[in-house]
Design a protein around this nucleic acid. Structure first.
Lengths: 145, 145
DNA sequence: GTCCATGCAAAGATTTTGCAGGTCC
DNA sequence: GGACCTGCAAAATCTTTGCATGGAC
């Protein structure tokens, strides 16, 4: 019921950047923002939005990714899926069993990165931290409790 | 000249686990251990080892990955490649321009993870941290210096 | 000798592209 | 009205699989 993250935000972001808000694009955004706490694959989005051309779904996802409006999640097995990018830098806590994902905010990672910065010749531009584990539900299922 | 990481290590690891050391398998291992500091894609391995069936190369890489003898590197653009897994847990410093990768050892990441462990219901089993930046060479090329 | 591994080729899965036509601003 | 976007279908990647044959132990 609560649409705490309405499409409008993404729509205006895109419009501000000079992208046209077409009907297919709007539908993708609407669907994506409806995923709130779930991550999804490009395939799932394409399947759910079957009135829209596959290519358009892929193109729109790439656009949203480039604009930082969605982010990639790397699963433990290397699988790739997407997720609404709630504002601000954050990391992911991913269930190795069901793929459920939560955002986590870890300020002290910055300190770690800062230490890397001081000890390398690289000019750092970003980082990605994914933490893997069993979510409460899968943990229970696993132990049989 | 210096083969600081000879195939032998990987070979005996596999043998100890009861896997047969066949000629094709040995050739893949030999090539992989020759990559020392470079990462490579499955495609590159298959291309370099064209006397071996594609499927075998893929199967062997998966085997090495499952055994922890090589590890995956996630590039900034989401691309996936592999790399010799030097012993012990480590992270990667990846050039966003050329893909060059260095291992980095960050003990204090454990503290961050420990803090996550204390504040979540998840049962943590692992994590992945990739740090992105421009390597010295690409940094120079970029500024035109 | 037995079981596992290989090779091939085909199938599968996923993503990109060319281009004619349509739509937003 | 012009530039950008879409849809389709084909192509391009990348990876897996079935099955008969061959090789390691």
């Amino acid at each position: 019921m609560t649409l705490s993250f309405p499409p409008d935000g993404l729509v205006s972001e895109l419009r501000d950047q000079g992208f046209k808000i077409t009907t297919p694009r709007y539908q993708v955004i609407e669907w994506v923002t409806g995923q709130q706490e779930d991550n999804f694959t490009a395939e799932e989005a394409a399947a759910a939005l079957d009135s829209i051309g596959r290519a358009t779904v892929y193109r729109t996802l790439k656009l949203l990714l480039d604009q930082g409006l969605i982010c990639r999640v790397i699963l433990n097995d290397g699988g790739i899926c997407y997720r609404l990018s709630h504002k601000g830098h954050h990391h992911h806590l991913v269930c190795v069993s069901c793929g459920a994902t939560e955002d986590i905010h870890l300020d002290d990672v910055e300190n770690v990165i800062q230490r890397v910065r001081e000890s390398t010749e690289y000019e750092l531009v970003g980082h990605r931290l994914e933490v893997y584990g069993f979510c409460p539900r899968c943990k229970s299922a696993q132990t049989g409790l």
